[in-house]
Amino acid sequence: MKRYTQHTTEFSDSAGVPFWKKAAPVDRVYIGYGLFIVLLVVISYILGATHFLPFDPQEINMDLLMAPPQTEGHLLGTDFMGRDILSRLIIGIQAYFLPGLLAIGIALVLGTCFGVLAGYWGGGLDIASTFLSNLLNSFPRLVLILLMVAAFKPNIYLVMAVVGITSIPTVASLIKSKIQFLKQKNFIEAATALGLKNAAIIFKHILWHNCRSVLIIQATLGMAEAILIETSLSYLGFGVQEPTPSWGNMVQSGANYFMQGNFWPSTAPALTILLTIMGFHLLGDGLNNILERKRDQ
């Protein structure tokens, strides 16, 4: 996940105006494209899960090998075994969608816990959580995953748990610096003076009202990270195995044909990866620009 510098937000001058009206046109384009991609992924996932597909993704058609797009009803053509690429792309979403949500859940929940402990109480807890963050940041993610794959069985949920755990430091440091900034504000002092419980202050006044947007942004960026890791792993042969499609192993299995000049079977999933990851990145950055930054300084 990405690391953002903190920007202070003033609430008073923009009260009443919905946030999308203040957005710069560029950010609207970013968010529009990102939301389009998210919607496409979710709808495709539902279509794939209910087997509402144009063709059977496993069906081999030896008469129609590596057809270009839009031949005989195959909207994106067929691959080197005559299988419909569009159907395989849609089924390929299943390789990362639910495991990616698991990774995001782990990163957000545990990251928020560590961030609150370090930011709200500080002291020894802060030192301990900084040490743990640096410890987790010392591992290159893919190398740690390869270690886990060697030690346990290659299992996508285990891999995504590792992705989630290694994303904890980013979320924790964002929440921590946000809380340290908020603690100097008057309303926290007022809430303490009114005798509110710590739990109420943390959950309602800090997390719900002030950290929501940070967590939403980190969730979109986390999905991009999950897609990147899943495609790399199934490209390397540790993820989903043929004949079950995933975007990474579709690129990999088209490699020999790519070198012979038949670019499409590898290029279609690669472009899908590119456009999807870019969508999640743009959505995250656009939301960050609108929600976390006062643009008209």
């Binding site: 991009a224 495609t231 790399s232 490209y235 690129v251 990999q252 590898s266 290029t267 690669a270 990866i273 590119l274 456009l275 990851i277 870019m278 990145h281 743009l282």
Partner: peptide, 10 residues
Amino acid sequence: YVASALPVFW
């Protein structure tokens, strides 16, 4: 943005 989303193997 394109460069950082580009699949490195492709």
